[in-house]
Structure formats: C-alpha cells, structure tokens
Design a protein around this nucleic acid. Structure first.
Lengths: 171, 171
DNA sequence: CTAGCCGAGTTCCCTCAAGAAACTAAAGAT
DNA sequence: ATCTTTAGTTTCTTGAGGGAACTCGGCTAG
C-alpha cells in the first residue's frame, strides 16, 4: 500500500487500523503476546517472509508496541516483547478470535481456548459496557462526535442497518 | 498481497485476519455499520480507490459479511448493509477504537464517543470474561489448545512477556 | 427528444510492496 | 577450521493498490 495517510483522519479506528490493519501485524502480535518473540520462530510459525517480518517488527518497535530486548548475553541475542501499549491490543485479538470462532470454527469446535486464570474457567470475550457491564452491540449503541473533532459523515445513529434476513447465526 | 493462505491455519485470529486484516476492510465495516452504505459515499468518505472498494465489497458480500440490497426502485439503486455476521464484527471495531483513543487521542480527547442506549451513558468497551464479567488481559489469561486442533507453537502460558518498563500508560 | 446527471461500478496504466530465496554477519560449538 | 544458530539484508519478480478516465442504465430538465 502506498501509505494512504489514514493516521491523519480524525477517527481512532483509522488510526489503529493504520498500524494494525495488516494481515501480518495482527498475527505477529498474537505470537508475541503468546510468547513467540524470536525472529526465526516468528518466520517459521507465521510463514512470513523475513523481509516483511523485519519491516513489521521495526515499525512496531518504532510505534512503541513492541520492544526489542536482549534475552541472553553469550551469544548476544534479541527478541521482541510487547510493551503496555502492545498488551492493550489484546482485546482486539480476542475480538477477532471470538468472531473467527463463531463463524469459522468447523465441526470440531474452535482451535484454541482462552482460560481465565482469575475465575478459572474457559471463556470467551464479551464486549461489555464499561459503565453497566451489559454487552455493547451495533443495535444498542450510537456514535456521537467526541471532543477531539467531528467524525465526518458517520455521525448518525446506528440502528436498523442490519440486512433484513441475510446471514443468520451459526449453530 | 499474494494470498498467503492464512485461512487454512488452525487459528481463528488468522481466519478472521484473512478477511479483516486489511486497512480498508475495517474502515468499510465501520462506515457500513454507521450507515454509510452507498458506493460513492464510501469512496468519498474513505478516499479509497473505486477499484479497491469494489473488490473489497464483493469479497465481503461473498463472505456473507455484507449484503447488497436495493434501497430504491426507480431508478434502481443498491447499497451495502451488514449481515448478522458483519454486525458481530462490531466488537473488533470497538476494540480498535478503544485502543486508538487510549494511545492516539490528542489533547482534545477522542474524536468520537460511544453512547450506550441501554444504560444511557457514554461508554467504552471492556473485554470482559463471558463467565465472570471481569476484564480479560494478557496477564490473567492463558491459551490452551481447543477441540478444533492444536495451536502450533503458541501453546504456552501467557505471562510475564510484557516488556519490563517500556511503553507506560498514557495520561 | 436529446443532452445532461447520478449512482455504481470497470478499465487502464504505473508504481511500490509482498514473496521467495539466497546471502551476510557475529558468536559459539565440535 | 569448519559448522550451526540467530538475526537479519539483498536481489529479483510478480501482483496489488492508487489515480483517473471511461461505461452504462435510467431518470430528468429544457
């Protein structure tokens, strides 16, 4: 892509997408957050070309999402770990995973489970309202312009914009 | 991209990313979910090239995420609306937006607010555990292989993999 | 009735980025 | 002295994205 300057747009989704809206970046973050931080391990696990991986990693380090850290002195070796900023991308990954599980898991069920150490249950992510804890959905939310600038033409109520019958829930 | 076959991988994030891991797709979904469904409106709102938009839209329709619907008969005009499958991508967008707000909102604050109609508060999304309602974070979760296949090398506990000090929280 | 306009795309050309695979380079290990 | 591991660069080719012009059905205004 020839750098369409999405980051300029007054939209946090656009800003986030400018960094994260790339097939590899999401997968790199998944791996790094699950402990795969070494260059060659990422190459093998993802099947990404070394060139592209190097480019993504340095972008992510530049953005402060990952950090390059020495993990052994002799011989000196570096790997990549998530910063706090990077760790906060975890909900994005959970949301993607949740959606993938719901719509693409085969007969056998989802390929991975999330185990919540706090409550000791296997679980899934719910997009909950920070205020009341109820799920946030397209139908029960509205987007309004915020203090940081108006949000272009997308300033309407989100409502009955779901297709009438198409695409029913899976099993 | 030359179609690296991510959808084959036994990982729901990879599957979701195969479709959604594209700078434009996320923004198209944002627009469609907020009511911008017409071809030319999308071109103008996003600044995407008509060729790429046409390609993305037909892919999204193929995948059952969007539906092409006639919204007036004379003259016949079609626009795009989200299916149920598409509407369920909303949490992904909320998570991206949340992250963008936290890390890229300027002085003025975030460019848009989410208003929860149910509880009547402006709110943000929390990645909550479906079981206990507490937030899911990198530190309090573990990924385990699920019924639908093992998840490659990423089968470790997620834990102290956050960079020691780098990337502290914003204001 | 013919010229113009609108919405929804196609087509064409060009450039730049992704893929593949070989190459480099430092530092042990055998 | 050579081999291996790790972490990248370099080179080359193909193909996807950007930009802009073109198409096409169907109203609508003069």
């Amino acid at each position: 892509m020839t750098r369409t300057p999405l980051s300029d747009v007054a939209c946090s989704i656009a800003r986030a997408t400018d960094l994260f809206g790339d097939a590899w970046t999401a997968l790199i973050m998944r791996d790094v957050l699950t402990g795969i931080g070494r260059f060659d391990d990422l190459v093998h696990d993802l099947g990404v070309s070394r060139k592209v991986l190097a480019a993504r990693l340095s972008r992510l380090v530049e953005e402060g999402v990952l950090a390059r850290e020495r993990y052994q002195e002799r011989p000196p070796r570096e790997h990549y770990v998530a910063t706090a900023k990077g760790a906060e991308l975890y909900p994005v990954l959970l949301a993607l995973m949740n959606w993938g599980d719901r719509w693409y898991a085969g007969e056998a069920g989802p390929p991975a489970r999330i185990h919540h150490l706090t409550c000791e249950h296997d679980t899934t992510m719910v997009a909950a309202c920070a205020h009341c804890g109820e799920p946030l959905t397209v139908d029960n939310t509205t987007q309004l312009p915020g203090p940081g600038g108006q949000i272009g033409p997308g300033t309407q109520v989100i409502g009955p914009l779901i297709a009438s019958r198409a695409g029913e829930h899976p099993a």
